[in-house]
Design a binder for these strands. Sequence first.
DNA 1: ATCCGGCCGT
DNA 2: ACGGCGGGAT
Length: 298
Amino acid sequence: MSEASDIAVVRSLLFPWWDGHARDLPWRFGRTTPWGVLVSEVMSQQTQMSRVVPYWIAWMEVWPDARALSMASSAEVITAWGRLGYPRRALRLQSCARVVTEAYDDVLPRSYEELTALPGIGDYTASAVMSFAYGERIAVIDTNIRRVLSRVFLGIESQGGTASREERELAARVLPQDADESVTWNQTIMELGALVCSAKNPQCEQCPLARVCAFNLAGKPGLGHKPTRPRQHFKGTDRQVRGLILEALRTLPSGSRISHDDVAALWPVTGQLDSCLASLDEDGLIEIHPDSSVSFPS
DNA sequence: ATCCGGCCGT
DNA sequence: ACGGCGGGAT
């Protein structure tokens, strides 16, 4: 599809689809604060929404705002993060809460620059907060949006790696002028990417854009062999070992320690275990005591 | 096996 | 620009 005539057409197809198919996530439709939106976005970094929902609900009940989270202990925060994965995010979120509390008096800043300066908040999350929490007109760029826009308007698969200048310009070009519409646009493109226009197996039969999508009309050239960064395996990696250690601590009564022997029993490769302990310590996710026992940080 | 609403240090 | 960082679902 050649663009411009067509942005309006795409919008007219997209918005009714959003009305009928948007997932009823608890942080949507004005039911939470900007801080609540930020928490949902951080939890969603590299993690599926369906897994996020119960964690977000429980988290916001305990720590409804930045000030509350800023006063929690690291141990509580890491425990509450549970099995969401990438637990450094939990610590960064708490650092973020402390900055918001102290530097901004518990009021989340409303500019992209201030948001990206916060710990754990990069381009995507800052843009998402600006759009979804504050209703500002800004192009949100994530893997879903890159994939959908590239397919619909360019007829090709988006490349892996950092978003190219072309992709950024496309996203800016097709963003509706009206601020409210731009928010719905961002959310709808993302939702379409998550539910219909998936990477490997797009459900074009159910797609509202099937008739106008350049990629579909071109016969989906190159579907499936998009060059992406090779996925890291999980089994046997440091990430698995780190996960085992944290999982062992999480299932203990709060405040207790694990002896070095019990830690050693978690993984047979001693050298790898020790380097993982060191890296967890460095990340602030555990504390190693003089007797070599291990606990969450105090 | 592949993907998932990235961020950060190097 | 690259590699590390969880864990679940399909």
